[in-house]
């Protein structure tokens, strides 16, 4: 595909973009290989080594139950990345489908579907989070569903807008004139047209989801299920650290750094993609 060749070319030229992508790949890999590369076990209670500062044995120190902070951050990476990717994908699937149907069908169905979207916009995000976390519990599934529910409307609106534009294009009208089926028109002619803006939105919703999750954890609504290998996100670690910020700054510093750098890398990636894919640039 021409698009991917162009992307590859851009990446070769732009060092910031390459660095961001490499960092994301590294974090993702580290998260999913956490059980293999972690120096310690993520759970447990080690009475002998509570709250140690960073040392040769514990590079990033230990926490209030004597758990290794580096290990917890590695395990946290998979949770945070999974939340980011998972949310973005859920939202992409639901939102794109919804927007395609709404925009392509038009008329009364379109109006109705858009009113539903308006209602989702009208509900405070936080309320949705709080309620869902109470119904579903503070685990990764609950957070994925909650974040997905909030994010999909953005995709729906963008897709619908793009479909409305694409519908007016000459070749789509042509395809319709020669009697192509709806599904065919949607898949062959409209979807490729809206691919670029969706890709950019997708890239930006990953860091947004990671950020939302960490914020939720901070106010005590995020993923917190320490007995589960998928149970402690960076946000939870940072929140625990915030409670001890004065005496044990290492407990907040390292998780915070992890959150910040990862979100930053995704945002750089998103920026780069947007610039490259901007139709006005060529």
């Amino acid at each position: 595909m021409k698009l991917f060749q162009r992307l590859a070319g851009e990446f070769r030229r732009n060092r910031l973009l390459t660095a961001s992508l490499a960092f994301i790949a590294l974090v993702t890999l580290a998260g999913f290989l956490a059980p293999l590369i972690s120096p310690y076990s993520p759970g447990g209670f080690e009475e002998q080594r509570l709250l140690e500062v960073p040392s040769a044995a514990h590079w990033l120190g230990t926490d209030e139950l004597g758990r290794d902070v580096l290990t917890r951050i590695l395990y946290g990476a998979r949770v945070s990345i999974a939340v980011g990717l998972g949310t973005a994908l859920i939202a992409l699937l639901i939102g794109t489908f919804y927007g395609l149907v709404s925009g392509y069908a038009g008329g009364a169905l379109d109006s109705f579907l858009m009113r539903v979207v308006d209602i989702f916009y009208g509900l405070p995000d936080l309320l949705i989070f709080v309620l869902l976390s109470l119904f579903l519990g503070r685990n990764i599934t609950g957070v994925l569903i909650a974040l997905g529910l909030i994010t999909w409307v953005r995709f729906a609106r963008i897709t619908r807008g793009q479909v409305l534009q694409a519908k007016e294009l000459i070749y789509v009208e042509g395809a319709r004139a020669i009697g192509a089926s709806h599904v065919r028109i949607l898949l062959r002619h409209i979807l490729p047209n809206i691919f670029a803006p969706l890709l950019v939105t997708l890239t930006f919703s990953i860091p947004a989801a990671i950020l939302s999750e960490s914020t939720l954890s901070f106010i005590g609504l995020g993923i917190n299920d320490p007995y589960n290998a998928w149970g402690t996100s960076w946000g939870t670690l940072a929140q625990d650290g915030w409670r001890a910020m004065r005496t044990y700054p290492h407990l907040i510093f390292f998780p915070a750094l992890a959150i910040f750098l990862t979100i930053l890398a995704f945002n750089f990636l998103g920026n780069g993609l947007r610039d490259i894919l901007d139709p006005k640039r060529n």
């Binding site: 960490s214 914020t215 910020m245 700054p249």
Partner: peptide
């Protein structure tokens, strides 16, 4: 980009610190 990558609570914590 830095600005949109910093969660409120981390920025708040850093500023208080």
């Amino acid at each position: 980009t830095l600005g949109i990558s910093l969660p409120h609570f981390l920025l708040g914590a850093a500023l208080i610190w």
